[in-house]
Amino acid sequence: MTEKQGVILYGPPASGKDTVTTALSELDSKYAQFARLKVGTGKSAGYRMGTAEHLEELEAAGHVVYANARYGNTYAIDRPGVDAAFAAGVPVVHLGQIDGIRALVDGYRADWSVVLLWCPREVTEKRSAERGDRDTAARLAAWDATREDLDAHLDMVWDLTVDTTASAPQDAAHLIDQLLAQRAAAATA
């Protein structure tokens, strides 16, 4: 039996993680964004909203694979959530920290394809303004943190790197889909 496959999309804010995930799900319905558990306020679309008490229960049971704080909220990747995502198909996990990638790859057994989506800082600023973000300054600070994260982890190996200013979301989705097909074929060879 082939190991279950998942996709991790890493990149700064507005690098195209949501857009590429939408293109992947349009290409094949097996792809679906993993809804991280979010404790806090603000945007709820794409998240499973939870309480601090629920997160504490998951942590106490050893079910939190990775958690981070950003924008005044806590975001968690939890084992029951990942289990459910794999039961439904191929999860696409959005991360903005290399430590999160490593925690997920090391902490949840699967064939993870790790993709770097990139755009320059000024593109993040423009895209953030165009989509009506009220916290563009915080997103630019997160872009800076992502750049620092990359610079601090030069040993990070990417299965695929996509410049989202040069590749259409559908093209990126096709590249990711091809990557998973190649990895599945190699695993069964």
Score class of each variant (00 low, 15 high):
residue 122 E to T: 05
residue 183 R to L: 10
residue 156 M to S: 08
residue 104 L to W: 02
residue 83 D to F: 11
residue 115 V to G: 05
residue 101 I to Q: 05
residue 165 T to P: 07
residue 60 A to G: 07
residue 74 T to Y: 00
residue 5 Q to F: 12
residue 157 V to P: 02
residue 19 T to N: 12
residue 28 D to N: 13
residue 60 A to F: 11
residue 139 R to C: 11
residue 20 V to S: 03
residue 148 E to L: 12
residue 17 K to V: 14
residue 99 D to H: 12
residue 126 K to Y: 07
residue 151 D to S: 08
residue 58 L to E: 11
residue 150 L to S: 02
residue 96 G to M: 09
residue 162 V to G: 06
residue 2 T to A: 12
residue 91 P to Y: 04
residue 164 T to Q: 10
residue 88 A to G: 01
residue 11 G to R: 08
residue 15 S to G: 14
residue 24 L to P: 04
residue 90 V to E: 05
residue 75 Y to H: 07
residue 100 G to W: 07
residue 165 T to K: 06
residue 81 G to H: 02
residue 170 Q to I: 15
residue 145 A to Q: 11
residue 144 D to W: 06
residue 91 P to D: 11
residue 24 L to M: 09
residue 30 K to E: 10
residue 123 V to C: 01
residue 143 W to M: 01
residue 122 E to Y: 13
residue 93 V to I: 15
residue 149 D to K: 00
residue 121 R to I: 07
residue 114 V to F: 09
residue 14 A to D: 07
residue 5 Q to G: 07
residue 37 L to C: 01
residue 177 D to K: 06
residue 114 V to I: 11
residue 88 A to M: 07
residue 37 L to A: 01
residue 73 N to E: 00
residue 51 T to E: 04
residue 133 D to C: 12
residue 65 V to T: 09
residue 152 A to P: 04
residue 189 A to G: 13
residue 175 L to C: 11
residue 24 L to R: 03
residue 82 V to M: 14
residue 25 S to Q: 14
residue 159 D to M: 10
residue 186 A to Q: 15
residue 140 L to W: 11
residue 53 E to H: 05
residue 54 H to F: 12
residue 93 V to F: 06
residue 86 F to W: 09
residue 175 L to M: 15
residue 130 E to S: 11
residue 31 Y to P: 03
residue 139 R to G: 04
residue 12 P to S: 14
residue 142 A to Q: 14
residue 173 A to P: 02
residue 66 Y to H: 15
residue 55 L to P: 00
residue 72 G to I: 06
residue 72 G to F: 02
residue 2 T to Y: 13
residue 73 N to W: 00
residue 29 S to M: 04
residue 80 P to V: 09
residue 157 V to F: 08
residue 105 V to W: 02
residue 37 L to M: 15
residue 130 E to L: 15
residue 84 A to Y: 02
residue 64 V to G: 03
residue 89 G to H: 10
residue 70 R to G: 01
residue 33 Q to V: 08
residue 106 D to Q: 09
residue 3 E to I: 09
residue 155 D to F: 04
residue 89 G to E: 02
residue 15 S to N: 10
residue 53 E to K: 02
residue 34 F to S: 01
residue 151 D to R: 07
residue 62 G to F: 11
residue 38 K to G: 00
residue 35 A to V: 00
residue 54 H to M: 13
residue 47 Y to M: 00
residue 102 R to Q: 12
residue 159 D to G: 13
residue 25 S to W: 04
residue 126 K to D: 10
residue 60 A to T: 09
residue 144 D to V: 03
residue 182 Q to T: 08
residue 174 H to F: 05
residue 62 G to L: 07
residue 108 Y to P: 04
residue 183 R to P: 03
residue 27 L to K: 05
residue 100 G to M: 08
residue 109 R to A: 15
residue 59 E to H: 09
residue 76 A to L: 05
residue 105 V to M: 06
residue 152 A to H: 10
residue 149 D to A: 08
residue 132 G to I: 05
residue 101 I to H: 02
residue 134 R to V: 11
residue 79 R to A: 15
residue 43 K to I: 08
residue 27 L to W: 00
residue 180 L to S: 03
residue 11 G to K: 03
residue 32 A to I: 04
residue 125 E to Q: 13
residue 162 V to C: 13
residue 13 P to T: 09
residue 41 T to M: 03
residue 69 A to N: 06
residue 153 H to P: 07
residue 91 P to K: 02
residue 111 D to F: 00
residue 44 S to Q: 08
residue 121 R to H: 15
residue 154 L to H: 11
residue 161 T to A: 14
residue 49 M to S: 01
residue 101 I to S: 03
